[in-house]
Design a protein around this nucleic acid. Structure first.
Lengths: 243, 243
DNA sequence: CGACTTCTTGAACCGAGTCAAGAAGGGTGG
DNA sequence: CCACCCTTCTTGACTCGGTTCAAGAAGTCG
């Protein structure tokens, strides 16, 4: 059950065997949440957890009920866990499917969860370093999101999102070459992409009609990823800019 | 010339007299940039600087030339300077007016610019701590921006931005009760708010027509800030959530 | 006084939202 | 296993917020 977290962290930066072994401790304290459950409330103190399975999101509601989703969270992603707690990591988080979470406390001792920074001349091979990379990745995704929302059309946004999800799922071994499972309703996609449900529906249809994607239930197949990347002006996140 | 930086940092967290004195060193190495000059290129190594005067922005361009601005930077803001370098702090930055920058190197020694973190039981009263607060503030503004772009109308977005700028400028003593200077063209506003220039123009007119704001040249007067806050669902950034 | 940038205005167009209703899924309990 | 209910998806018709195109007015600067 902890594989996905391992894969995710390992992809950001190789884990030492000792670290791998310690991460097994994540299996020790899990809890699950039903779809719609609030995993974290904005403003409340954060509780370090990883998603072992299921999808969630970070979001904010406007006074009149409009919702904007900031990030989609998939297995291996951290909720409310970060080296530098900030507004993003402490935004409201909600389960989108059934979610299984692992509490991180069992780790923070041995793995140096909130340990010292590599500012001076320390060994950067700590768990904290992995979490920093993870936070950087999420910040990069947030910038992409701003561009999508501000300057791309519905068609471009949707293509961009599908490519992003594909590459993130590939990182945790949950995407085959062209195929992946996206357990999201069109309402969630709408609230993420800043569109109406009806329009998301029509946009997905257009992508299907043009044989760029195929959808069977919650399975998505990217038929022509290269063309989608052109449409969306998609630049995969550069992992490890600082190596 | 360094007052604004002092005010800014002090607003986030009171500075000790020793820190204040050291910050005077910022005046030692300044440089200026003309409007349109690139202060930082995405991907290039970052150079720690503060804005002493003038406005700038962080932005990204799409392949076809569309531009999305992530953040507007005002005096006292850091460019390419952060405790945790991340995608935002290393995005492209461009001067919007004539800008005077202060290089930060003269400080980093004494003020502990890249110093240790308060993970353990260290004294958090370092310069690095101020920079962390600054980064948190900017991250919060970025989340507000996502909501604006994703779920608010042009009218709401514009009202929201004006309130945000007013409160940020107030922090550095550059806004009187209702008045402030906004040296931005409508094109910049458009690229920030994800709208066309023509529509920004009409939206500002509407706000003026409804006597919510007044504009004389680059001076903005918020006639009815309370009403603007209702329209924009504006929640001022909470400074120091962690105290 | 030009020459350029920025602002303003009108008219036509179109991407996306809204409203409404029906079809298709997906669980649940009898 | 089927009947039912509720959520999700789909479709059509209409509306509207926002864009585009184009041209003129107002600033701004050398």
């Amino acid at each position: 059950m902890t594989d996905l977290v391992l894969r995710r962290l390992n992809a950001l930066k190789p884990l030492s065997p000792a670290q791998r072994q310690r991460l097994e401790a994540l299996g020790e304290r899990t809890e699950s949440a039903a779809p719609g459950a609030m995993l974290q409330r904005e403003g409340a103190p954060i509780r370090p957890t990883f998603i072992l399975s299921g999808w969630a999101c970070r979001q904010r509601l406007l006074a009149d009920g409009r919702r904007q989703i900031f990030s989609l969270l998939i297995p291996g992603d951290a909720v409310g866990f970060c080296v530098e707690p900030g507004p993003l990591s402490s935004a409201s988080a909600v389960a989108l499917t059934k979610v299984v979470l692992a509490a991180v406390e069992p780790l923070t001792g041995g793995l140096n969860g909130s340990g010292a920074r590599p500012g001076g001349a320390q060994d950067p091979s700590t768990f904290a370093d992995h979490m920093r990379r993870s936070a950087r990745l999420e910040e990069g995704l947030l910038l992409d999101h701003v561009v999508r929302l501000g300057r791309q059309t519905a068609y471009e946004r949707t293509a961009h999102l599908l490519l992003e999800l594909h590459s993130r799922l590939a990182l945790i071994g949950q995407a085959n070459d062209r195929r992946f499972i996206m357990p999201l309703t069109q309402e969630v996609l709408a609230d993420f992409l800043g569109l109406s449900v009806v329009h998301i529906n029509r946009t997905l249809q257009q992508l299907r009609r043009e044989r760029l994607i195929e959808m069977l239930g919650s399975q998505v197949i990217l038929i022509d990823a290269a063309q989608l990347a052109v449409i969306a002006d998609y630049q995969p996140q550069v992992l490890d800019p600082t190596a």
